[in-house]
Design a protein around this nucleic acid. Sequence first.
DNA 1: GTTGAAATCATACCAAAGTATGAGCCGGAA
DNA 2: TTCCGGCTCATACTTTGGTATGATTTCAAC
Lengths: 156, 156
Amino acid sequence: MTAFLKKYKSILVYGFSLAALMFLLRFLELKVFIMDYSVEIYVGLIALIFTGLGIWLAAKLTRPKIKTVVEEKLVYIDRTGEFVQNDIEIQKLNISKRELEVLELIAQGLSNQEIASKLFLSLSTIKTHSSSLFEKLDVKRRTQAIEKAKTLRIIP
Amino acid sequence: MTAFLKKYKSILVYGFSLAALMFLLRFLELKVFIMDYSVEIYVGLIALIFTGLGIWLAAKLTRPKIKTVVEEKLVYIDRTGEFVQNDIEIQKLNISKRELEVLELIAQGLSNQEIASKLFLSLSTIKTHSSSLFEKLDVKRRTQAIEKAKTLRIIP
DNA sequence: GTTGAAATCATACCAAAGTATGAGCCGGAA
DNA sequence: TTCCGGCTCATACTTTGGTATGATTTCAAC
């Protein structure tokens, strides 16, 4: 019951206000404003009062309009979107499939031995591949190879 | 002028509605509802109409509350864009200035000796730095360090 | 069927990278 | 002042990386 009162308090107040105003107007009509021209003023007054009441009611009853503003917060994610391999450069440098494979694993931080195990090859094979790779890339170390291959977009 | 019209359109509509009703009421008063008991109905009617009008006005005029919603937007960064260093991660891993410096040079493909020469330090100092660096990054090799440091955005 | 490039593996050797340990120096915090 | 962390360097050692050379195989092209 209290919940009902709480919820419809606004409406009750409106109702009582209306009733009270009725009585007031009736009273005024009888006592003071018994004039012909008073009708316009009368109506205007009521209109104003009830317009105000309506506004008040609306403010009370309608849930507030919410305008949602989306604020974008950038979250930086692990590097590149899609990687497009620079096949032209690979061909130009004459890098073979195996060499490219080895290069990628080198860039992932694997040791020669680990690469050999992963590809089921001997250590010396990997060394041969990496050596020729360095020559083709014109570098001295695997770290340089990584740098160069990444800038040339040969690897991601 | 058109802007003014646009802005206060609601108010103008209200004004005209009020005027129109006045005339209507005056007309009705004269022609139809010339009765004593009509006052209450009369007033009630006006009250209702203008309450509605007030509500409508309120709905039109209240400016929406602005609710800000933070929306996380994932951004994939490629290494060609500008680089923002992840200082938080650097601090978290407790990497010192010198170590960071050495890390950058390692990632550029320099050998320990070259780094030593560039920074006017001894080879053993570079080895010490790189060793502690690998420990902090939890990696075994310099190539792994490069990989990890890049994904953590510690280096470009 | 010869040729040549790619791929495989081996052995040997040297260079560089990485580990372990210890020690001296310095500047700021307790 | 003392203490600690960062920076420096050294020595000794092990592991990994890289070069050089040579050999075998495969497979496609000429």
